[in-house]
Amino acid sequence: MRVALLAVSAGVLLAPVATAAGTENVTVTVAPERIATELGGKFAFTSTISNTGPTKARGLIAHLNVLSLQDGTYVDPEDWSANRTRYLDPIALGESTTVTWRMQAVNDGDFGIYVAVLPESGEPVPPVTGPTIRLDVAERKTLNAGGIVPLVLGIPAALGLMALAIRIRRRG
């Protein structure tokens, strides 16, 4: 009976350790670690997920997230990148895989970007995250995009003048 209880306890204790092996020997690095762009600018960075463990790392998911470093700026990560979740192929021991993330700056300000790797088994283990990428997005004012303002003002002005001329003529 005692042997059986010990076996069950050992199983309970060992189980998380065994499943956590999927991410515990994984490291994440990113390049570059600082990016500067302007509002609407498209940019990309890479994350390298390495397997430093004794066995092949399988069933890993890399997920991209972005947040504002200043309070008051609303960030919807879906707007920043259409493809924020990648299901990784198995990584052999000592090997690594590189993922390229393409993004677009939707707001101006200072933002933090990070990549988290977690097992697709859904085990309750902490995800492995890479260093935060600091993103500086400069404000950009587009008052005359492509030179459209003369058109936007000119056509209504011409029609308005015609309407006015007809009204004046009718009154006269």
């Binding site: 509002l39 609407g40 498209k42 587009t142 995009a145 936007v152």
Partner: peptide, 14 residues
Amino acid sequence: GIIAYLVATNTDLN
């Protein structure tokens, strides 16, 4: 004109 201005601005910002 307003619609065209807005979409041109959005196009300019990608």
